[in-house]
Design a protein around this nucleic acid. Sequence first.
DNA 1: TCCATGCGATACCGTTCGGTATCGTCAGAG
DNA 2: CTCTGACGATACCGAACGGTATCGCATGGA
Lengths: 208, 208
Amino acid sequence: MASTAGRPSRVAKLPPRERILDAAEELFQSEGIRRVSVQAIAEKAATTKMAIYRHFETKDVLVAEWMRIVAADYQAAFDRVRMEYPGRPREQIMGLARFIAEGLPAISHRGCPFINSLAELPDRSHPARQVIEEHKAHQTRRLVGLCAEAGLPDPEQAAAEITFVLEGAQVSTQNGSIDRAGDRLMRIVEGIVDRHRSALDASRPAVG
Amino acid sequence: MASTAGRPSRVAKLPPRERILDAAEELFQSEGIRRVSVQAIAEKAATTKMAIYRHFETKDVLVAEWMRIVAADYQAAFDRVRMEYPGRPREQIMGLARFIAEGLPAISHRGCPFINSLAELPDRSHPARQVIEEHKAHQTRRLVGLCAEAGLPDPEQAAAEITFVLEGAQVSTQNGSIDRAGDRLMRIVEGIVDRHRSALDASRPAVG
DNA sequence: TCCATGCGATACCGTTCGGTATCGTCAGAG
DNA sequence: CTCTGACGATACCGAACGGTATCGCATGGA
């Protein structure tokens, strides 16, 4: 397979750094962090170990960079959902749940990258862990705000309930204990929002 | 402790196999599976690598055996809860939730061993994975039965909701995104049971 | 044209790990 | 007492890994 080297007119090649991150993303997600060697990432990125270490000081730094990208993607999805239903926090919450529910089949073999990475990196000082915890805290803050916007009487409790259910749906999908987890998840979140709706003030302007 | 008298110079020593399993349990839980070497287990068990390989063919077999023990402990706790409230499935469900909630502080640093091991063993053919999936399936079956006993109109859905919430509480505790997760968990499960129960007592929505 | 620079390839280093081989010892069964 | 089998200790092996050093080449700017 190495015989195609030297051809400059290959498929429009991304710069090595992008290829490395793409390859790392794919391998880390499917195989796990510690099971993927730098050598394997280099091969999948059609480059070499040396090139990787030219762009990332250590493997841990590369892992943290990958986590940052995953977190950014997630935040972008959150933003997209918010913009899709402006001023309608209830629909925003349901959109977020739908985003997770639709992603369940894709992670059925391997689970959520955040949950998995947390398990694979018990060292709290690992750079990737700070990214994860920061992201999770940020996400919780946003969800609490969303529940408050929706007029739920106890936004923290509602956000906790939604968070538990979203996370639980992912791990239960991973271990295969619950079938049709996506449908069930949607029904559950719907129930959570509906249950608090009686206290909802219909005349509530959107927060700018 | 009196059976092995004669040389009380040391702490009453269990047979090597027990010591190995105890040490493995402690290390796997606190450090993770792949980060713990067989050598480290041997040292903590006050024995040697060779002794470990005399009792377990490979490290993977030892991991699976540990998983089996954890699953058995969990099942025992389930049984204890059931016997504590005979004929009262609602209290049994709450007892199960309390068992999880009370265990949250203990796993705040490292998470649930099942979830973590699932992340650390992406290979579906790993012997420990079969133990996990079997255990989770068994647990789900029991929970569905419990919900059915409690007369909930949709036991599968109720069990899924409870499972999601229990699992989610554990991962959220691990990543520190939700505070007072134990209290919140109890309130949520209480709400789930009450809600399904009122749907049983009367066909109209009861929560106001 | 020349040179700096990024890149691919390869060889290498030190460490760790799973797993094995060997040997001396000690306790208990006959 | 002797035999047997489990145990502890140690040394070792081969593989894999993270990370480094070095060299040759292609490219692009001056």
